[in-house]
């Protein structure tokens, strides 16, 4: 159910699954059963979802509850970035679009880490103000999830109070799609999305496997009680978990807004289903399982548009999740608790 203590086991599981999926998808595309372009698009969306889902899975594994507010953290992150790029930075004379091949300018490279830090701080603040009190009272995990629903609603309300309910956009320069072989068109910011997610995933992997805090997080995820009696400061671990989860949510929200070239207050709520589907598919508490889950969900829902109306994409993610629950409720890489 949680991240296995030994890193070797799941690392190979994840790598093999990724390879297998990759080969199947390539074979199908060469047989012209599915358009490769849909696969590429699905992978990009999957990578964005993965960033949010990894954060969700970490929080799920360590705090043991479904953080319904993860989607609205994404929304808030995307809008904070809008505030920086559209309002604050231009006043400080930091502006520009069309950096290199991308639609956005260099201010994005400043805004992204800044928003990650702000949202991480906010998440820790929420833990101190809300979740820690409830933990101290010893409430059940469902009540914590219920509370996160309230937090989610309040966050979205705050976004709508501050920015209104209209569609917004980052300052951007329209760019051509890349023309890749086999009729594949890659969106101009696709490479940026890939770079950011790969960097974050590698950084998280190194953090979890090499640092003291990362190991403490995995230990807490496995068995909180045991971690505490072994001298791990579990409250500190929880703060780090919130911080990482929220920073990843912020990134996912910003990347989603860049990819879709628009921001909407409901954007985060709408991706909750694929996010949770990815987490469950990969096994709750297993961040790298969530990565694979998100890629599977992203590609499947994108490829499904070949036969289904594109608006059914969330329903496809939902069906995949239900199928997982029926066949293997612990997820692909899950371990029976």
């Amino acid at each position: 159910m949680t991240m296995p203590g030994c890193m070797g086991g799941w690392r190979w599981g994840v790598a093999h699954t990724l390879m297998a999926i990759f080969l199947v998808v390539m074979a199908l595309s060469f047989l012209s059963v599915i358009r490769l372009e849909l696969v590429v698009n699905g992978l990009l969306i999957g990578l964005i979802m993965a960033v949010g889902a990894i954060g969700l899975s970490l929080v799920y594994g360590i705090l043991k509850f479904a953080n319904i507010a993860q989607g609205d953290f994404m929304t808030l992150g995307a809008y904070m970035c809008l505030f920086l790029l559209g309002t604050l930075f231009p006043r400080m004379n930091i502006q520009g679009t069309g950096l290199g091949p991308f639609t956005f300018g260099y201010p994005m490279l400043l805004a992204l880490p800044l928003v990650m830090v702000v949202l991480a701080t906010l998440a820790i603040g929420l833990d101190i103000g809300v979740y820690r009190r409830l933990r101290g009272r010893g409430v059940s995990t469902v009540v914590l999830a219920m509370t996160s629903l309230g937090v989610a609603i309040a966050l979205r309300g705050a976004v709508q109070v501050l920015w209104g309910g209209e569609t917004e956009q980052y300052p951007r320069l329209s760019r051509q799609f890349y023309q890749a072989p086999m009729d594949v068109r890659i969106p101009p910011d696709g490479i940026f999305i890939g770079l950011v997610t790969v960097t974050l995933v590698v950084a998280l992997y190194l953090f979890l496997s090499r640092t003291r805090m990362g190991k403490a997080m995995r230990a807490t995820s496995d068995n909180e009680e045991l971690a505490r009696v072994s001298g791990i400061n579990t409250e500190r671990v929880i703060w780090w978990t919130w911080a990482i989860g929220a920073a990843l949510a912020a990134t996912a929200g910003i990347l989603l807004a860049v990819f879709q070239a628009q921001l909407l207050p409901i954007m985060g709520w709408r991706v909750l289903i694929p996010l949770f589907a990815a987490v469950i598919l990969g096994g709750i508490g297993n961040p790298f399982g969530a990565l694979v889950g998100a890629l599977i969900i992203g590609v499947t829902s994108e490829v499904s548009t070949e036969w289904l109306s594109p608006s059914y994409k969330p329903a496809v993610a939902f069906l995949l999740m239900i199928a997982t629950l029926l066949v293997r409720p612990t997820g692909i890489f899950g371990v029976k608790s």
């Binding site: 479904a66 329903a315 939902f318």
Partner: peptide, 25 residues
């Protein structure tokens, strides 16, 4: 039938999915 045997919060996620699917249908 699918979710109530499993963890408590699976039901929440499944109801969220049902709500969205019903709307889409």
């Amino acid at each position: 039938f699918i979710t109530l045997r499993l963890r408590d919060d699976y039901l929440a996620i499944a109801t969220l999915g049902i709500a969205e699917s019903v709307r889409l249908v």
